[in-house]
């Protein structure tokens, strides 16, 4: 089967500041199962990028292998994408980002891709504070290889055949927090109103931004007894904090006075407005974030929203003192020491 393109019927669609419609941010037709959570994440990404008025080719999409990782083909057909090898998207993102930090790097991965084969790369990208949005489309199973439990499967969750998982799960958000990520969020593919602003905030965060999106697999993990099904997630879904992302300072002034709101200024100018719920949760407190997630585990509640944010961390570019002009754009003349320098250098080997 070849990739399909979609019919164009975008005459009456609204346009953003670049005079583009959402259609300009779409990719080729999805080949995932109807109802797959991953398609909703794709739609949220399209909307988030369109709303931010970002030129599509200012993004680079990178993914590993899995149903989730396939989705980089399904959004922003006008950006470069690279669908590499299983579990190793972070390394490609690292190299790509190092030589041109001016693009928005969007990494798409799955729970298998990130928490088993790619666990090391996931961890080390966080340690390097790679400036990217890392979307982990978490369904508790390996979709593409037909439903084996993944490392995010909860204890007691049942496979389609009714067998319970007995191994303890890896929580990517807890991992990211302990590894020092500066932006950690959890969302649900079924709640776009929460996911879209989180994606926008994650894109604007300067550093590693993880969004762990519960994204049910309708084919292999959406049955009764599964803790990653739509029904289960809707039932236990608990937003800790509401996030609004406003791209420009001016537009937010009227709202900031609202009681209990926390505002966080993002590196690239936007503002995050975090409205507290009853929980009195402060996403600037890393210890509280970890504690809350671990407690949530016990109550069964799936605690979502922007769990932690820290805008003051040096990203990989800063730590490596990389130049303003991307490495891939430096002219050769700026890179070669030249003939005379070589002659001089060799004194040490005589």
């Amino acid at each position: 089967m070849t990739s399909m393109s979609k019919p164009l019927i975008d005459k009456h669609l609204p346009r953003n500041k670049l005079n583009l419609t959402v259609r300009d941010y779409e990719g080729s037709m999805s080949t995932l199962c109807a109802g797959c959570g991953h398609d909703s994440v794709t739609a949220a990404l399209v909307q988030a990028f369109w709303q931010l008025d970002l030129p599509p080719h200012s993004a680079a999409k990178i993914s590993g292998i899995g149903c989730s990782s396939k989705t980089t083909a399904y959004f922003m057909g006008q950006s470069h994408g690279i669908n590499c090898v299983h579990g190793r998207m972070p390394s490609v993102a690292t190299g790509a980002n190092a030589v041109n930090g001016d693009l928005h790097y969007i990494g798409i991965s799955g729970d298998g891709d990130s928490l088993s084969i790619g666990f090391g790369q996931f961890a080390h990208a966080i340690r390097r504070n790679l400036n990217m949005l890392y979307v982990l489309e978490n369904n508790g199973v390996y979709g593409l290889t037909k439903g084996q439990f993944s490392a995010s499967a909860d204890i007691g969750t049942k496979s389609k055949k009714g067998i319970a998982n007995e191994q303890s799960p890896i929580d990517p958000c807890v991992q990211a927090l302990t590894l020092g990520a500066g932006f950690v969020a959890r969302a649900f593919s079924g709640d776009k109103s929460q996911l879209v602003p989180l994606i926008q905030a994650g894109l604007m965060h300067k550093g590693f931004a993880l969004i762990d999106v519960i994204s049910p697999c309708v084919t292999f993990n959406d049955h009764a007894g599964s803790t990653k099904s739509y029904a289960h997630t809707f039932k236990y879904y608990h937003p800790l904090v509401h996030t609004d992302f406003v791209a420009h300072h001016e537009e937010i002034t009227a709202d900031t006075s609202e009681g209990g709101a926390i505002t966080v200024t993002m590196h690239d100018g936007g503002i995050l407005k975090l409205r507290k719920t009853d929980d009195d949760y402060d996403p600037r407190d890393r210890a509280q974030a970890i504690e809350t997630l671990l407690l949530g585990d016990r109550s069964g509640e799936i605690r979502t929203g922007l769990l932690y944010v820290n805008e003051d961390m040096a990203d990989m570019h800063a730590a490596n003192h990389l130049p303003k002009t991307p490495l891939n754009a430096l002219p050769y003349e700026a890179l070669t020491p030249g003939r005379a320098a070589l002659a001089k250098l060799q004194g040490r080997w005589k």
Partner: peptide, 30 residues
């Protein structure tokens, strides 16, 4: 103090080649 090069000590060779491929894909000599 800007450096016109980037060296990353990777977590393993699974990653070091991925990084070099990412940089090559993105137009740098890697």
């Amino acid at each position: 103090g800007e450096k016109k090069f980037c060296i990353i000590q990777a977590e393993d060779e699974l990653a070091s080649i991925g990084m070099a491929v990412g940089a090559g894909w993105n137009g740098a000599r890697a």
